[in-house]
Write a protein that binds this DNA or RNA. Structure first.
Lengths: 152, 152
DNA sequence: TCCGATTGGTTTCAAATTGCAACCGATCGG
DNA sequence: CCGATCGGTTGCAATTTGAAACCAATCGGA
């Protein structure tokens, strides 16, 4: 989670010019990514999130607020009724590739051979293929064949 | 971080059959993914990691141990000399797509228009293209066009 | 070979974060 | 109108994190 913006000077990022670090500052705690995962799977209400994740209620309040403050979730009025619901913003939905790669790594490395786990499927019920970095010409890329460059 | 395996019965996962949750249990804390990022960028020694991340030394000790215990890092003997170094295992290297998607989300959503940040480039210095989920036939997929299915 | 610097930690203690459980006012449903 | 549910809040205990001091084992140069 980003350090709190108590002085109004902005969040004091862990590593201000690394995009990985900024993202981790925003969603890299035990619960935020699971909240996003559940939102992508249809969770909308406070109790939805609480029951699916098992998170403590006060912490859930805090996370929903922070994710909302950071523009990943938005509160919307329920179509019928008065209660407020949470929905992913465009930025929140754009975390989909992150959730997918986390899922796929977990499927490959966090289960024993025989263990069952959920899988992500497309509209036709076909498994979503592994997401792998590739150059513009399609050749696969790894951490050994890429590097981080200071920009500009 | 996974709950500790104090009873020898295995880590009590947050959500045992969700691969996303298992991955978050293993690397979803403030520092582990930054340690992996730095390992991918060439960090090998304790002080390498400490200086690049700025993490407290006792916490770094703990994280290096846990990542090693979980098979993401391995300790190897330095080619010349006696000190031990850390290197990514195959499972650790396989987190590359996760780091890439975190980075790309950060580049898109965690920087103001004018702010500078590092970029990931391939061997030719060309920017690594955005990683986007797609079906086997190449059509783009989003959280709205996919779903999680219980498997078997 | 001696000496000081560096490395890779460990220890101690304080501060921050998390979780549990009880409580609460505003709905909702009948 | 009544009881259940929703979306929290509050207080407190347990856990995790961080800063700083300390330390033994190298390492590197004079």
């Amino acid at each position: 989670m980003a350090r709190d913006d108590t002085d109004g000077q902005g969040p004091a990022w862990t590593d201000p010019n690394c995009p990985v670090a900024r993202t981790v500052d925003l969603v890299g705690d035990r619960w935020s990514l699971l909240i996003i995962r559940d939102a992508m799977d249809g969770a909308r209400s406070f109790t939805d999130f609480q029951q699916r994740t098992g998170i403590a209620r006060n912490i859930l309040t805090d996370r929903l607020r922070k994710l909302t403050a950071h523009g990943l979730l938005a509160q919307v009025d329920a179509p019928s009724g008065r209660r407020r619901l949470y929905a992913l913003t465009e930025a929140g939905k754009d975390l989909f590739p992150v959730i997918v790669t986390l899922r796929q790594w977990g499927e490959r490395h966090a289960f024993e051979a025989g263990e069952t786990h959920s899988v992500l499927v497309d509209g036709d019920g076909a498994r979503v293929p592994d997401l792998l970095p590739a150059a513009a010409n399609g050749s696969p890329l790894t951490s050994d064949t890429t590097s981080v460059r200071r920009h500009p």
